[in-house]
Design a binder for these strands. Structure first.
Lengths: 211, 211
DNA sequence: ACCTGTTTTAAACAACCATTTAAAATGCTT
DNA sequence: AAGCATTTTAAATGGTTGTTTAAAACAGGT
């Protein structure tokens, strides 16, 4: 007996959803081993047993959150690459959007990265994410640009790495750099704006050399 | 009653040192919350109680390892900056050495970074590390180069960030990138060599523009 | 009001955690 | 060989972990 209005309710404010959101918040902040089921339930304002009632186990819930975060992460790329701009424009826009996205979700890169390094971690068992990016045709666009000579002829696999390095690291390493350089939060955020411009210029200059 | 030869012994193969090394290995691989005292003792091949006997607590031992790793990390920078080469040369050499260092200690960047993001984590309570780098005079060298026009006049705090982003991220994100792009270990390592060249060229081109 | 399936609760569970204890083993000095 | 401090051990401590249980509360249909 399916009651549609109940299913709808689930996606909004049900206990299940409250726990899911609490789990996302806590897992992203502290990682799998760094938190407890009880902590998640507490943040959700619900009983501990409900975590297992709705999600069977802490690990199962974690997998769900991981896939969720990975999807957000990949989607934030796909949007830009799927447009019909030139490669140079796409990259400039992407860097802009990526910095904006990471300002809202600063924990995602480190979360995914750590999870992939965890032994027995949630390895990525399908290439659906890669295909999503490939489906935008951005790789063909690169090959064409390289043939035309407008783009530096480098291994295509190095390009995402160059971009991600310069977008993700400054967010992930905020606390490390801040402390090492004796800055405070405001100073760092201010510096980040300048830094974004340098990253943008540097990458464009390198990948699309003039002459 | 201090027995000097015993103190010497401690630094080599004593139980204390065995535990310290085991702790370093395990902490770097799994983080503080991701492992147990028993696991460390097991790797060291010693009794669990000895962890507390020699280091009082898991947290105390962790702090020791953290400082240790941070020092290695900073030292790997100081060596290069302290030489009497030109800035451009220093940077090229540094990137080379950093990639080599990280090939041997790939877990260090993520370890330090995560620790700095951990609530109640080992924040850096002294600026001795920063001063070690400053003492090489590399910052003055930068200012002079910027005044001469041989170096792009950007905020000095952005320069370490640019370099570290492009040196550390490709190591830290190995598993993530590998899985997303469907590569294997050998392919990634191969790609990394090319990538290092791009990083080197790109940074030099940007920071020391010709004309 | 009663039945029925779902949701929530407090309590209990065994397993494991970091740490402590007290006794045993070890090695050096005399 | 005896004495002594240091080192190592097995066992126990109290607390916390993820998960299960069984009963209670709640809902809608009849």
């Amino acid at each position: 007996m399916q009651r549609q209005w109940q299913k709808q309710m689930k996606k909004d404010s049900s206990t299940e959803e409250k726990i899911r959101q609490a789990a996302r918040q806590v897992f992203l902040a502290k990682g799998f081993a760094g938190c407890t089921s009880r902590e998640i339930a507490e943040v959700a304002g619900e009983n501990v047993a409900l975590v297992n009632y709705y999600f069977r186990s802490k690990g199962q819930l974690y997998k769900l959150i991981f896939e969720d975060a990975l999807e957000d992460f990949v989607n934030s790329m796909v949007v830009v690459f799927g447009s019909d701009k030139s490669l140079k424009e796409k990259m400039t826009i992407f860097i802009e959007k990526e910095y904006a996205f990471l300002a809202k979700h600063p924990e995602i890169p480190a979360f995914l990265l750590n999870e992939m390094n965890r032994e027995d971690g949630c390895s990525i068992h399908s290439n659906v994410h890669f295909e999503k990016i490939a489906a935008t045709g951005v790789f063909e666009q690169c090959i064409k640009a390289q043939q035309e000579g407008s783009m530096r002829p480098i291994d295509l696999r190095s390009i995402p790495l160059l971009i991600m390095s310069n977008c993700h690291y400054p967010i992930m390493a905020k606390n490390l750099i801040m402390h090492l350089q004796g800055m405070n939060d405001n100073e760092y955020e201010e510096n980040l704006k300048q830094h974004r411009e340098h990253v943008s210029q540097m990458l464009v200059n390198y990948l699309f050399p003039e002459k």
